[in-house]
Design a protein around this nucleic acid. Structure first.
Lengths: 116, 116
DNA sequence: GTACTATATCGATGAATGTCAATATAAGCA
DNA sequence: TGCTTATATTGACATTCATCGATATAGTAC
């Protein structure tokens, strides 16, 4: 159960052929939908975007709260969703928690959507 | 208003740079999230997959209901969501409604996620 | 130890959503 | 006209979810 939440995107990435290649099984559809749902929120899309564009390609919660215009608990919640989905990583250094893009995560996801 | 629902994906496609290229505006995040939400459902992912894999790359509701295991009104609902998102097209021929992938729709979406 | 800061978690609430049964619409055919 | 089939729409219900305020945890400095 712990593994399911720590390695979901990697799993999705290798789970199935591109969407339009062959019919998706119910099980794989469930897994892919979970990952897409993690991204399918305006606040989370902006978080991913802001983290990627930030200096050193990492950002702490304090960097993100104000420009996002949402409360700290809400931002922490969204970041957790993205980490659980395998899109971001979290590293705690001192008092701060730094978030980074998981290399290749978005690309793998994109490759599942592509038709060619 | 009618245009907003008939051309949303095209709009999204041309709206913004890839997610990780520059920080997404609140407005563009909203639009991209809407499109991703349309895909972020297991039933709809399977519908897209089944339509693409079907003979002649098109399928009517009656082809999809039974393999999906959902009721006809539910399937019609999901298909409408996908059409409104610009991912599928609907063409009525006689009694039947045929659904097809919008060429390039998924690819455009994928190109917004890619980091390279 | 206390005080302060950064972050995470909890609990509640309102909004959005997936599903179904029932009904409506529309097209084809006797 | 009526009958049948395919699809869409409506209304209801249960569930999920985004957000917030309050609180808990953890780390740093004094």
């Amino acid at each position: 159960m712990a593994l399911v939440t720590t390695l979901p995107l990697t799993d999705v990435t290798e789970c199935c052929a591109p969407l339009t290649r062959e019919t998706l099984s119910a099980h794989n559809a469930e897994k892919l939908a979970k990952t897409l749902k993690a991204l399918a929120d305006p606040a989370r899309l902006r978080l991913v975007s802001m983290v990627a564009a930030h200096d050193d390609a990492e950002a702490c919660v304090c960097d993100l709260t104000e420009p996002l215009g949402l409360g700290q608990p809400t931002v922490s919640h969204h970041l957790k969703v993205l980490v659980d989905a395998g899109i971001l990583t979290r590293e705690k250094r001192g008092t701060w928690a730094y978030y980074r893009l998981v290399p290749g995560a978005l690309d793998s996801l994109a490759s599942l959507l592509v038709t060619a």
